[in-house]
Each structure stands twice: as structure tokens, then as C-alpha cells.
Amino acid sequence: MKREKNTWTRALKAALGTLYSMTPMLLAVIGLVGLFQTYITPEMIHSFFTGSALYDTLIGTVTGAISVGQPFISYIIGGGLSQQGLSLYAVTAFILSFVTLGVVQLPMEYTLFGMRFTLVRNLLSFLFSILVSVMTVWTLEVLL
């Protein structure tokens, strides 16, 4: 019983130590989230799109990656863009990259996982945001 308590206390101390060491990095990322949410507004995101399906899909992926916030924000922006006549490819790419890519968390990812891992994961996420959006819309068109 006492041995188990010791194991638990030692593990808790180690975990607290790790989180404490990461506090500056975590606070920096949270600070960046506030700045991005303030300076990158939905209106600014809307202004990047042109109406060309191909170009807008790419823009959707990039703007999704630089946007931050809860996932529902991407649905609201995406819904608004869709109502304005923007292609579903671009809207899907936007809502996907909104949650899979994150410019603000790149420094932390690089520090903890290394350059190669961060580069490979983010490049794959970028490419697959486009691929998944194309496949989703195609499948939807075939089925409905």
C-alpha cells in the first residue's frame, strides 16, 4: 500500500515537473491564439476567396491553417462562405485544415517532436485536407 502510494507520488511529481517546464511554451501558444483570434477576423478570411473552385480550395486550406478557435467557428464561417456561392471543395478544405493544421502550435510541435516529424505531419495534413475535400464532394455528388 505504502509502496503504491510512493510510486503514485513519484509519478505525479514527474508529471507536474514536465508540465511546469512546458508552461512558458504553453503560455506562448495561448498568447498567440488570442492575437490570431483578434487580428485574423472572419471578414478577412472571407476576403481571400475569389470564386474559382481550384484556387479557393487551396486558399481554404491555407486560411484554415492560420485560423484558430473552436471547431464550430469553422462551420459558421464555412456555412457563410457556402451561402455566398463558394464551392463546397473550398469550404470542406477550410473546415478540415481549421482543425488539422495550426500555425500557432508549430513552434511547440517542432520543439517536442523535431523538424522531420513536424514537417511530414503538417505536409501530409495539408495535402490530405485537399484530397479529403475532393473525395467528400465527389462522393456526395455521386450518392445524391
Binding site: 515537473g17 517546464s21 512546458m22 512558458p24 498568447g31 513552434p107 511547440m108 520543439t111 517536442l112
Partner: peptide, 14 residues
């Protein structure tokens, strides 16, 4: 454990 490199990177970023 968090390496010294990771710690100093965090401080610089902050």
C-alpha cells in the same frame, strides 16, 4: 523530462 533546448525555446517564444 523536458530537455534544456525545449525549455529555452519555450522561454524565447514566450
Amino acid at each position: 523530462t523536458v530537455s534544456e533546448r525545449e525549455k529555452s525555446f519555450g522561454r524565447i517564444l514566450l
